[in-house]
Design a protein around this nucleic acid. Structure first.
Lengths: 147, 147
DNA sequence: AACAGATAGTTGCTTTTGTCAACTATTTAA
DNA sequence: TTAAATAGTTGACAAAAGCAACTATCTGTT
């Protein structure tokens, strides 16, 4: 690892922070904030998650999460099922309403991104995806060798 | 732009949100939060910025910014110079203390990133930078054609 | 010059977001 | 059976952010 690479990477990070801010900002105006949206995302994509799982997945405070989940329970987006194996834990799942709600959110995010990319050609988009995949591979390796 | 590219890009965005969170989280424990750090960054790197400039640069609420600046004034990180041309506006600049303070923060960020990348070879780092540059070019083009 | 509207920045008030520590209930291991 | 650990909840609070009203100044129009 060369020190000379640090600056350009940090510069990219600042740039990409802006991009993500742009994409998030628009979506999260109403209804849900970022942590809430992330919770919905995880619950939509994985089964048998507990609060504990979400805490380590999202790096979120357990008190804060508990309130988010209570709120989601109240507005019928999620259901809790006490684990038969462990009476303290509960498996979380989206209700049909919850799934629909996530899909709306997801669709809006797609639209927002499409909008940003609308001026690009197929080739450019493909290239974008390619570079992203590469970055991901490299950073995953970095993370792995760090743990 | 093909719709099929949307999903992998959003997946990368989630991944990179995690990376940025990792890097930010550690740095910003004490002293400054993200908006504050960004203000310091801008003031360190550019002269003759006004509050207005920071608002459009950082997309931050002017009331919130005003308080941040007042705070920075109190702890002697910045100085305000009334613009001779416009009595409402003030040019902002870091004091010597402010510059030192930013440099500490900046150094810590560098260390944090170095740490993340420590397992990578020079080649891999170079490749990382390359892909980042490409992404940036493409996204800048996308943004431009959107405005 | 005099006024109307725009702009830079500040301030008070409020809401949202997030943190912390104490607590209950349950489980695990000795 | 008891002590320590763990899952989750709750209350109290602090930090972060947003909104709208306000002051001071500037710009353009008549």
């Amino acid at each position: 690892m060369k020190t000379s690479h640090i600056q350009p990477i940090r510069s990219f990070n600042r740039f990409y922070t802006g991009i993500l801010g742009l994409l998030d900002r628009y979506i999260l105006t109403n209804h849900y904030n970022l942590p809430e949206a992330r919770v919905l995302y995880e619950l939509y994509h994985r089964d048998d998650l507990t609060a504990r799982d979400l805490i380590s997945l999202l790096q979120i405070d357990k008190g804060y999460l508990s309130r988010i989940l209570r709120h989601f329970g109240k507005i019928k987006l999620i259901r809790k099922k006490r684990s038969p194996a462990d009476g303290r834990a509960a498996y979380l799942e989206l209700t049909a309403t919850g799934r629909k709600e996530f899909e709306l959110l997801d669709k809006a995010s797609n639209e927002q991104l499409k909008n940003l990319l609308s001026g690009l050609s197929d080739k450019e988009c493909e290239s974008l995806v390619h570079h992203m995949t590469e970055i991901r591979t490299i950073l995953l390796k970095a993370q792995k060798s760090n743990s």
